[in-house]
Simulated assay, not measured.
Amino acid sequence: MKNETPTERTCPKCGCVYTEVPALSRTDNKTLICPDCGIRETLESMGISKEEQEKIISIIHRNTAE
């Protein structure tokens, strides 16, 4: 296993700084975005409302923090 220092990136969509593995934007299949924006793009493509998207992301954050 490599001992790599996490790379800080700034999401071009939301401006948040993150260190997780980036997601590939569905809008152009080129741009790396933060995992949360990646989830939002996926949920939006499924017709999930913005309010429901935020609830889902909140649940994901709550469960990964445990």
Rank of each mutant, 00 (worst) to 15 (best):
T7S: 09
C11I: 07
I56R: 03
S25R: 03
R26V: 05
T19P: 03
I39D: 02
S49L: 06
L24K: 11
E51C: 04
M46K: 15
Y18S: 02
G47A: 05
T27Y: 15
G15N: 08
D36R: 09
N63Q: 12
M46P: 07
I33V: 12
P35R: 03
K50C: 08
K13R: 11
K55V: 13
M46F: 15
G38P: 00
E8P: 08
P35Y: 05
N63H: 13
E52V: 14
E41Y: 02
L43S: 02
G38Y: 00
I56Q: 01
C16M: 10
K2F: 13
V17H: 12
E20M: 07
P22V: 00
I33Y: 01
S25N: 00
G38I: 00
K2R: 13
E20Q: 10
S49D: 11
C11F: 06
H61E: 04
C34V: 02
K13A: 10
G38H: 01
K30H: 11
K50R: 14
T27P: 04
S25H: 01
H61P: 01
T7F: 07
T42I: 07
N63L: 15
V21T: 15
T5I: 13
R62F: 14
N29K: 14
K30A: 09
S58E: 15
E44K: 14
L32Q: 14
T19D: 08
Q53S: 05
C37H: 04
R26I: 12
P35H: 05
L43P: 06
E4I: 14
T64N: 11
Y18H: 04
K30F: 08
E41R: 01
I56A: 10
M1P: 13
E41P: 02
T5G: 05
I57A: 02
S49N: 07
G15W: 02
I57C: 05
T27W: 11
E44R: 14
R62D: 14
N63V: 14
E41T: 01
H61S: 02
E54F: 03
I33G: 00
C11D: 10
P12R: 07
T31R: 04
I48R: 00
S25G: 00
K13C: 08
P6K: 00
E66C: 06
V21D: 12
T10D: 09
E54W: 02
C14S: 02
E66T: 11
T5C: 07
L32W: 06
I60C: 03
S49Q: 08
K50W: 09
K50Q: 15
I57G: 01
C37E: 05
N29D: 12
L43D: 04
K30L: 11
G47H: 04
K55I: 12
T31A: 05
T10H: 10
R9C: 09
D36S: 12
T31G: 05
L24A: 06
M46E: 13
M1V: 14
V17K: 15
N3V: 09
T27I: 15
